[in-house]
Design a protein around this nucleic acid. Sequence first.
DNA 1: ATCCAATATTAAGTCTGTGTTAAGTTTTTT
DNA 2: AAAAAACTTAACACAGACTTAATATTGGAT
Lengths: 225, 225
Amino acid sequence: MKVLIIDDEVAINGFINKGLEENGFEVTQTFDGEMGLRLARNSSFDVIILDLIMPGINGLEVCRRLREEHQIQTPILMLTALNTTDDVVEGLNAGADDYLGKPFKFQELLARVRALGRRSGQIESPANLLQVGDLTMDLDQKIVTRAGQELQLTLKEFLLLECLIRNKNRVLSRLDLLEKVWGIHFDTGTNVVDVYMNYLRNKIDKPFDQKLIQTVVGMGYVIRD
Amino acid sequence: MKVLIIDDEVAINGFINKGLEENGFEVTQTFDGEMGLRLARNSSFDVIILDLIMPGINGLEVCRRLREEHQIQTPILMLTALNTTDDVVEGLNAGADDYLGKPFKFQELLARVRALGRRSGQIESPANLLQVGDLTMDLDQKIVTRAGQELQLTLKEFLLLECLIRNKNRVLSRLDLLEKVWGIHFDTGTNVVDVYMNYLRNKIDKPFDQKLIQTVVGMGYVIRD
DNA sequence: ATCCAATATTAAGTCTGTGTTAAGTTTTTT
DNA sequence: AAAAAACTTAACACAGACTTAATATTGGAT
């Protein structure tokens, strides 16, 4: 099991590193938030141990950015000297999964890391899937299937479908879709959304009986169960 | 999000129940381990809050059996007066995902339950609904139903109805409606409002006994409970 | 009861919104 | 560097949403 330690205090970082390695974990150490973010983004860890107080980007910020900007759901154990209720609450709300105050006994850290790791192991295996009816998107493999048949989508088609499914049963306006898929935040008079909706339909709806994508005139598009 | 509380202490059980319900959770309470096991097996909860010390089957045992015998992986928050390191370690090793010592602040419990729940189910955003009598508008799905029956409205009809309901029991003049629905800020002598009010009535009032839209002669229109 | 103004209804004409295609542009692959 | 694929823009056709306008009906005052 792979663990990332992000803590600027060299002594503590080393202490955790040593203890975890003795217990059979694969450990990566880093001493600042910036590097921590980069490592967490680019490798896949099972658990991240994150110090709250660090020079530069602090732990809360690292946590928030991993969750919100990078959509990384690796379990995070927040580690810090602060452990009043407010700090704990703030940490958990920023997206941490657990919180441990310093000083701590190593046995407790170990148990908590195992608890977190156990969870990720089970959650990761049922792949990262989105579904509507008999259509499935595998977000890791980037594969879309309908009725067991694999469909070949381009990037924009894929993103558009993902957006629709993540908001299934909610009608999305062209502007919503332009923002979320194309990153265009104002009306430029383009009709790309229409065109791509057409391409998408040709692939995921045309060959099948039940149509998933619906137009709601004047409002936008939905995908429904 | 569905939460199961297993705690024999009636006061604490009730306290948690009340607090969680106020925060929009669906809560099920039970006061002994036996029943807790049965409920956890048969319904699907997003989080289980489990007291360690209980008469009959204790929390550790419940936790262990859920994990080992029943293969149930619902996140468990262990709750107890004991909070020495050893107890925490034992609890987490039995398969709990988090551990909170009594007494605790409710805000911390809430944050921890949310952190656990975030994993299993997505937080369902409460639907965006407007209601008058037996008529419901779902602003996300853009669906209008009356007496359980789905009604098909066009854009202008939908906006007009939305405007009426948002101002229910308040009489809106034609000019008010022209401004809010059509964006026309001066009198152009048009009678669109009348015409659309007619279309709307044909769909939402004509087929039903109780009429929701009322004309106030010389003043405008209202929708009332 | 009668008249006038306000409101309801209907029907026809206009025009916007949408689907579709094709051609032009950029990016990626070979 | 050429070819293919992906993406964007633009133009056109058509259905149905919307608007206008004319006529019918209702409500309230005299």
